[in-house]
Simulated scan of single mutants.
Amino acid sequence: MTPAAGRDPRLLVLAWDRTQPRTRALGPALGGDSRHIYGGWPGRHRGLLPVRYVADAARMWRRLRQERPDVLVVISPPVIAPLVAWLWSALHPCRLVVDCHTGALHWPKWGWTRPLHRLLFRRAHAVLVQTEEDEARLRAWGTPVVLLPDDLPDPSEADPGPPGRGVPRVVVAGSFDWNEPVAAALAAAALVPEVEFRLTGDVSRLPRSVRAGAPANVVFTGYLPYAQFLGELLTVDVVAVFSTDPHIMNRAAFEAVGLGRPLVLSDLPGLRARFGEGAVLCPNDAASMAEAIRLAQRDRDILAERSRALRRRLQAQREAALAQLQSMVRSRQVPAAGARVRSHP
């Protein structure tokens, strides 16, 4: 399972999604390429999901036949993607790595896939995770696991953001997922009328009554392409990211830190461990959110410097994890089951 003599291994990262910033950055960081599988037929209707999985599996197989990777990194969820990747690696000289996002192990809709994931992970050369909690779980399963923090975007990746209006502004970064306390964030905005609250995400995912009842200082930006989203973060005084999911590792928090922005987060164990030294943390109730945003607005220069310091630490952790992963996938030996790979003390 090694590449032909005289050439470097061909590495490919694959995700079944329109786009994922973590996935897009991972391929080049490992000296390879990233691809997203997101086809047209048979459409996105929920009732057609089984048919779409079959279609996406066929698209993925065609892509693998075209690119013939020596190392294949596949993102889960959905679990069908690593199942296809495992079959490919069983039939071809290819090493399998799974990048297991937190939703694969913790979101209720993927609960039925945990036995499948456990079986797949035992057949993978390595499994990437985002949190210490998941690292401990997979190690207990006998999985060769690497804790890999997300990439940290640079301001050069951002498009110019909207011009300021002479009032303090905060971006509440999200996508209106089920685990975002949107109602509490809107209630917090009503408590801080002097601050403009800019909520990102596809507003069609919100009930019309929620949009209609938003305070006057709330702006719904709609879905923003990634470079435009980063530009939005650069133009505001504070970036806030709220979630009720106790297992989450917020992508937008990495983006705020990468851009050196003052950060407010929900006070959840994983987020406190990863970002606590640089962020203001608060419970998910309106009064606490409003107070945290006032505090971050007041101390924004101090918090911006803390974000820059945290960026340096997280970048060092990521580089160490990437180096270890590269060593693992280029090694002739598969790591022993349960091997532990850490990117930090």
Score class of each variant (00 low, 15 high):
D33C: 03
F254E: 00
R205V: 10
Y53R: 06
W61C: 08
D8V: 06
S327R: 14
L271C: 08
L206C: 05
P21S: 10
G6R: 04
A58H: 09
D301T: 11
R198D: 01
V98N: 06
L265D: 15
R63K: 10
G111M: 02
W88M: 02
L265A: 11
S89V: 10
Q315C: 07
P77Q: 08
Q130D: 09
P246D: 09
V79R: 00
N284G: 08
R10W: 00
C100I: 06
G231M: 12
A55C: 14
G161I: 07
M289K: 00
L230V: 08
G276R: 14
W16V: 05
R340P: 13
D202T: 11
F229P: 00
R169I: 00
E196D: 06
L49F: 09
P28T: 08
S288M: 04
G111I: 02
L120G: 02
V195F: 00
G111Q: 13
V97Q: 07
A287Q: 09
L186R: 00
Q20H: 11
V182F: 12
V203Y: 00
T200N: 04
R342Y: 09
D237F: 11
D17G: 15
G6N: 14
V172T: 02
P42A: 07
R274P: 07
E133K: 07
F176N: 15
I75H: 12
E291D: 15
F176P: 02
V218N: 01
E157Q: 15
L199M: 12
R208I: 05
L11F: 14
W88S: 05
I248R: 14
R62G: 11
C94D: 04
R10K: 08
S266Q: 11
L48S: 07
P193D: 09
R62V: 13
V182P: 00
L224H: 10
H125I: 09
C94P: 01
Y223I: 07
W16C: 08
G31I: 06
G27H: 07
D237W: 06
R298E: 13
S343Q: 05
V172L: 05
